[in-house]
Design a protein around this nucleic acid. Structure first.
Length: 192
DNA sequence: AGCACGATTAACT
DNA sequence: GTTAATCGTGCTC
């Protein structure tokens, strides 16, 4: 195991729903202020194509969504509700807009660094939501578009543990209550 | 230039 | 269970 254990661009170029499922158990790492934070991905959601009316790419290619049309394995980071950042991984071949939203993490290392950004919150709520985890890891628009397949950069993803099927809960995506069917109810949310 | 809304969170009743 | 916070984005005029 001398070489990097990062996931490759080819790995992310597969179907976004398969990637969302298989990202469970993988390790997300972040270097900030000289500290390294390591974490395990525990919840994801898939967003696939312009036809998926829950996906930001339903509006086509715009300045915001351009990253989703780019190479797989890069970060798509968007701003919402006037104050929150959310982290996605671009998937599927270039020019097809799709991404996996990272919804929850289990911190493994760098707890002090996380605590400094989540003061006053119980530990169980440090990274159990898509905007909570970006706050905890100091992720914002400055990291939009970065290549997550580059080990030991500012933000990257490595192989972790394989999560057995009987430990995976699959269900509808959340926070999209105004989206029409069938998109609203598709079981594209995965969690351990 | 103006407008409505949002892949959420935290603090309420 | 309900609601304020807060502003970039995409759409309409």
């Amino acid at each position: 195991m001398g070489l990097s254990s990062c996931l490759t661009s080819d790995w992310f170029s597969r179907d976004v729903i398969v990637v969302a499922r298989e990202l469970l158990g993988m390790h997300l790492s972040r270097v900030i202020d000289g500290q390294t934070i390591r974490s395990r991905i525990t919840e994801t959601e898939a967003y696939r194509g312009e036809e998926d009316l829950a996906c930001h790419a339903r509006a086509g290619k715009t300045r915001r969504t351009a990253v989703m049309y780019g190479p797989p394995g890069h970060a798509y980071i968007y701003f919402t509700y006037g104050m929150h950042w959310c982290l996605n991984v671009v998937c599927m071949p270039e020019n097809f807009p799709a991404a996996v939203l990272i919804r929850a993490l289990e911190p493994l290392d760098g707890l002090m660094s996380i605590a400094s950004r989540r003061t006053g919150r119980p530990r169980s709520e440090w990274t159990n939501g898509p905007a909570k985890l970006t706050r905890a890891l100091g992720i914002d628009k400055n990291l939009n578009g970065v290549d997550l397949t580059t080990p030991r950069s500012l933000l990257w993803i490595e192989r972790g543990e394989v999560v057995p099927e009987d430990q995976v809960i699959c269900g509808p995506r959340v926070g999209i209550n105004n989206v029409p069917e069938p998109w609203r109810s598709l079981p594209w949310r995965f969690r351990i």
